[in-house]
């Protein structure tokens, strides 16, 4: 068994696609029409055959309140690894991304948390558990 997909629940698939590709820098792996939604996955250009991230519609009525509760408390939905959190923070802030936590040393890791504009907070991490 292996983990080939992970997903984030997004409030608007097209907005999410733009943010995850143009702003974060991931690249499209699949984009397949599925009725009123799309099956969209993106991958890291550093690992194009790696785990795909599904940009999944947050349609189920339980999902938006769940997401809001996490966001209110600053809890990231998921996390991505980067080489340099401070550099990513600088790059993303210049692109207008809102951070709820600037780069902070947490033991052997450096972490930061930003808003993905689609209803989730995302953590970026450097070092630590890798």
């Amino acid at each position: 068994m292996r983990i080939n997909l992970s997903s984030v629940p997004v409030d608007d698939q097209e907005k999410a696609y733009q943010f995850y590709t143009r702003t974060l820098g991931f690249q499209k792996k699949h984009d397949i029409p599925m009725g009123k939604h799309r099956w969209i996955t993106v991958v890291s250009p550093e690992d194009p055959n790696g785990t795909e991230l599904v940009l999944e519609p947050d349609e189920h009525p339980a999902v938006p309140p769940f997401k809001s509760a996490l966001v209110e408390d600053g809890i990231p939905f998921t996390a991505f690894a980067v080489e340099d959190v401070a550099a990513e923070h600088k790059r993303l802030e210049a692109l207008g991304v809102k951070f709820t936590q600037p780069p902070t040393e947490m033991g052997s890791m450096v972490t930061a948390v930003f808003d993905d504009t689609c209803g989730n907070l995302i953590m970026i991490t450097q070092g630590g558990m890798e």
Binding site: D73, G74, I75, P76, T100, Q101, G107, V113
Partner: peptide, 17 residues
Amino acid sequence: DRDGQSLFELCSRLIMK
């Protein structure tokens, strides 16, 4: 140390530091 933190950041700092 840093004013204006979320609950998540505070909890992370308390456990890590």
